[in-house]
């Protein structure tokens, strides 16, 4: 199987105008992924599916990932003049990163038995509406999984035929898998000390008992 860079180069030709980049993965398994902009996701995915060398006919896994606003710190080597001598000093450079939501697709080929090629779509921010392109018209297997990502993360999939809540009930308002989700407060006091649960339950402890 060709490398991800080669796939990227060919996909860029097949879907002109697509902004593609490789997201590096530092873990030992080195499953790097292909980041594609929302507008061209359908064209790139179609190329990946239909290209005779790749033939990624099987979309195994669709996932949402939530990244909060974060402050990234990276160590940068800077040349500085200290006491008249030029030295290389390590400085911590801090950058702010706006939060975003991701939809991740794991693609395999059943015909050629290779994979995975990982495709990512990123939303510009976390505020509503967060939209990405649905790949359900290409792979039917995305249907329920994209619904699940919508249900739990609140990502809207453009072009999905039946986008509604799948796991929670219809009147539910929150997106529970988001990192800043505040869960309902239904912890009554129970005499089973259990770290976090106990902390939550303590708020419901009758007043007299708190003193004791």
């Amino acid at each position: 199987m060709e490398t991800l860079e080669q796939t990227l180069a060919r996909a860029a030709v097949a879907a002109p105008g697509a902004q593609l980049s490789v997201v590096k993965n530092d873990s030992p398994c080195a499953q790097h992924s292909l980041l594609v902009d929302v507008e061209h996701a359908y064209a790139v995915a179609k190329f990946l599916r239909d290209d005779p060398q790749l033939r990624l006919d099987y979309c195994s896994n669709v996932t949402g990932v939530d990244f909060l606003d974060a402050e990234l710190s990276e160590k940068v080597k800077v040349k500085k003049v200290v006491d008249g001598v030029e030295k290389e000093v390590e400085e911590v450079k801090k950058t702010k990163r706006a939060g975003y939501l991701e939809a991740v697709y794991h693609l395999y080929s059943m015909a050629l038995k290779h994979g995975p090629v990982i495709l990512r779509q990123r939303t510009p921010g976390r505020a509503d509406p967060v939209k990405v392109t649905s790949l359900t018209p290409l792979w039917r297997s995305c249907e329920f999984q994209e619904r699940e990502v919508f249900d739990l993360y609140g990502v809207l999939f453009d072009g999905h035929p039946d986008l509604r809540r799948i796991l929670m009930w219809d009147g539910f308002k929150d997106y529970p898998m988001r990192k800043d989700y505040a869960e309902p407060d239904d912890y009554e006091y129970e005499p089973t000390p259990h770290d976090e649960v106990l902390e939550k339950a303590k708020a419901h402890l009758p007043k007299a008992e708190v003193k004791a």
Partner: peptide
């Protein structure tokens, strides 16, 4: 930090786990 997708053939079909680590003791995703 990194991510991995591991899958095996269970009796029902392909069971996969997709993990993202941010270097902390808990999986990020």
């Amino acid at each position: 930090p990194g991510e991995a997708y591991g899958r095996i053939e269970t009796p029902k079909g392909e069971l996969g786990f997709y993990l993202i680590s941010d270097g902390s003791p808990n999986p990020y995703r």
